[in-house]
Structures are given as C-alpha cells and as structure tokens.
Amino acid sequence: MRVVSLVPSLTEAVAVTVPEALVGATDWCTHPEGLDVARVGGSKYPDLERVLALRPDLVLLNVEENRREDADALATAGVPVRVTYPRTVPQALTELADLLAALGVAGEPGWLAAARRAWADPPAPSAVRRAVVPVWRRPWVVLGGDTFAGDVLRRLGVVNLYGDDPERYPRPDLAALRAREPELVVLPDEPYRFNAADGPEAFGGTPCALVSGRHLTWYGPSLAEAPGLLAAQLDAPLT
C-alpha cells in the first residue's frame, strides 16, 4: 500500500511502524528525524497534483489540520482518504490501532502498547490547577471544550477554565483571560511558538508553564512519553 500523510502525527506513526508504506508527507512532518519521503506542501494547502503524482492508495487527513475541500478533491479523483478526529486520549489510541490494522500491521507495535500503559496510569499531579491554555497570540486563541489537548491536560490534573466553552477554540481578549484568574497559564511551543519572553509577561505574576506542543497535541508515538514529559513541564512553571 502507498500512503500519503497530510497529518504530522500520523506521518510519524506510519513511518516508525510501516515505513515502506509511506511515500509522501507534508513539509510540516518533522518526525521521525531524517524522514526521507516526497513532500507535498502544507497541511492546510497541500499541492494536490504532487499528491496524485505519488499514486497513493490512501491519503491520511484530520478534521482540524486539513481542509474539507482537499478531502473532497482527492475523493473525486478516486483516491481513498481516511479522516481522523480524536478528541480524547482513548479515541486517539483506538483510531491509531484501527489505522495500523488497516495498513496490514499484525498486532500493536511496541510504541502503541507503551502509550496505552502510560495513559492507563499517568503521573499524579502535585496539585490540581485551574488554567488557561493559549494556543495562539495576536489574536489570543485558547483551548475550549471537546479538544484532544484539553483531555490530555485534564488527565494530568489541569482544569481548563475554558473547558466548558461551546467553542472549541475561543478567542477572548487578554482582559478576559486575566479575568478568569488562572492559577497557571499553559503555553505550548506549537502551533504558536511561545517562549519565556513571549507570553508570560502578558499575565503578570501568574505562573506560566512552557510545554511541548508536539506532546500536547500529537497522537502517535509521542503519546508514549507525553504523560511523564508534560507532567514535569507543568510542575516547573516560570514566575
């Protein structure tokens, strides 16, 4: 089977499990390191002519990362597509297992079994913290309800103050964010690259935790190490 992945998480999952199947990926597919496959542009705006030129038997997409019109265009061209949309850790593990089975993988690979074990008993938080989780700035965008990253944080003892918002990615202004009086601000390094200087100053003395965006939002081999890594980062906030 010839697979093109337009989802970095799934690119990594396929590349480390059935590398011979992967023939194309986006420019943003950075893992595993040294990945040597044809590149087909970005996740939001892939070069569909390049995708079709690779003669894929399957193209992998995600509801959040890719556009419906690209999925429709590929389907119209006769290319099978598989669209993922996990909003919880268990859903991600199930979707990954189903995908690998569809690719002919016999049994679960070691990394997926390790991820199940890691999330069955994630590290206990030192304290349950009420937090806001910006994922973009200029304008501010935060995690709302029904998101995969929100479920990851919940399992690590973080209470998302926008977790019950009807919007999945609300856009409050900074005054509204401060008014929630968070005990912690969680700042991932992707998709927006928050750092020690860009983000914490906006929240005064509120502790800010810089965390790995890949481990917060990707669902693939990174899931196996995500609980321990994120828990350590959440427990070492900047002030």
Score class of each variant (00 low, 15 high):
D235H: 13
N160V: 10
P90Q: 08
P123C: 15
E65A: 12
G41A: 02
P237G: 10
N62W: 00
Y219P: 06
E33T: 01
L216R: 04
G78S: 04
E225S: 14
P237E: 05
T11R: 04
R138H: 12
V159P: 04
P56K: 06
L35E: 02
P227G: 10
W218T: 01
P227M: 08
E190V: 12
G163N: 05
V59W: 05
T239P: 10
L230W: 12
G150P: 02
S126N: 14
R82P: 00
R154Q: 08
R82K: 05
P207Q: 09
T147S: 09
E201R: 15
G107V: 10
P122Y: 12
G163F: 03
D198A: 15
G144D: 04
D98Y: 04
V105D: 08
A176D: 13
D36Y: 01
L52S: 03
A149K: 01
E65Q: 11
A131D: 14
Q91G: 10
L61E: 02
A209W: 06
D165V: 03
R154E: 13
A73P: 02
D72K: 12
D27C: 00
S222H: 11
A115E: 05
C29G: 00
G163S: 06
A21G: 06
A73Q: 07
A53I: 02
G41Y: 01
V128E: 15
A53H: 03
D198Q: 15
V63Q: 10
L10T: 01
L10Y: 01
A102L: 07
T94C: 08
D146F: 06
P80E: 10
Y169L: 07
A176L: 10
L153P: 13
E64H: 02
Y162H: 07
S43L: 00
L103P: 11
L99A: 11
V18F: 03
R171D: 02
V152R: 09
V81A: 06
T11N: 04
T88E: 15
L35F: 07
E201W: 14
E225G: 07
F203M: 06
